[in-house]
Design a protein around this nucleic acid. Sequence first.
DNA 1: GTCGTAATGATAACCATTATCACTATCATG
DNA 2: CATGATAGTGATAATGGTTATCATTACGAC
Lengths: 129, 129
Amino acid sequence: MQRLTVQRQAILDLINASNRHWDADEVARALVDAGAPIGIATVYRGLAALESFGLIDSIQLADKKRYERADKAHHDHMICTNCGHIEEFSHDTIETLQQAAAAKKGFKLTGHQLVMFGFCKKCTQGLDA
Amino acid sequence: MQRLTVQRQAILDLINASNRHWDADEVARALVDAGAPIGIATVYRGLAALESFGLIDSIQLADKKRYERADKAHHDHMICTNCGHIEEFSHDTIETLQQAAAAKKGFKLTGHQLVMFGFCKKCTQGLDA
DNA sequence: GTCGTAATGATAACCATTATCACTATCATG
DNA sequence: CATGATAGTGATAATGGTTATCATTACGAC
């Protein structure tokens, strides 16, 4: 039904090549810079398609959605509200407890998103000064 | 510095009077219906102010922000992706583990948001049929 | 080849939210 | 009370991420 086109392959390669969390605009800009111009609408559709294929993951932030590689173990995110740095972490017990909490409410879980906000190591030191 | 004006009091009363999770538009509509017309910009500013006062809480969803009463114990949310129902839950151990995970990465936590997606009890039954 | 389906890309439209700006309300105090 | 400083209001314009539209192009099956 859906196709993995040249443009989508380019988006996928770009995202797979780093650990960054990309937004649509950054993807478009990077591809243009790499000599593979692509329409912004195509980027949005491509990102949505790749995510539906399970080839990339995403986090929904307050202002925009960001995409990252999917070939990593499940993890959640800590975001520095000062510098924007995104740190990944995972905690099996938390996952298990979430399942338990959902079950207690009769919820059939399909996904979740845990985002923690604060100051990263670097910015915490900066604040001390 | 900031004031608790008539309009803001009206917003606060409205939110305190139920367990709903309101978006800005719903608040404006409800106040108009209640005979207390209010500008939409005032609603946005009022909601932000009330949250900064600690008088209401919020959850940031993918499309919009929703506000609820703050006079409840801390909790997170489960959202039914089928009917939109929002269920609240809390889990002390999860909170504790989050703090631990943050500390391990050198993060100074200021807040977090855990949202779980799935099908609520009612919709799960509906899907069986 | 050719038909049907999907994708592309430029652009318009959408929609929640924020900024602007003229005006009003409130407070402190001289 | 008058006065000025500050904050709030509300109509509306602007912003910005995302989605819809639509004509055109690419791909796959037969």
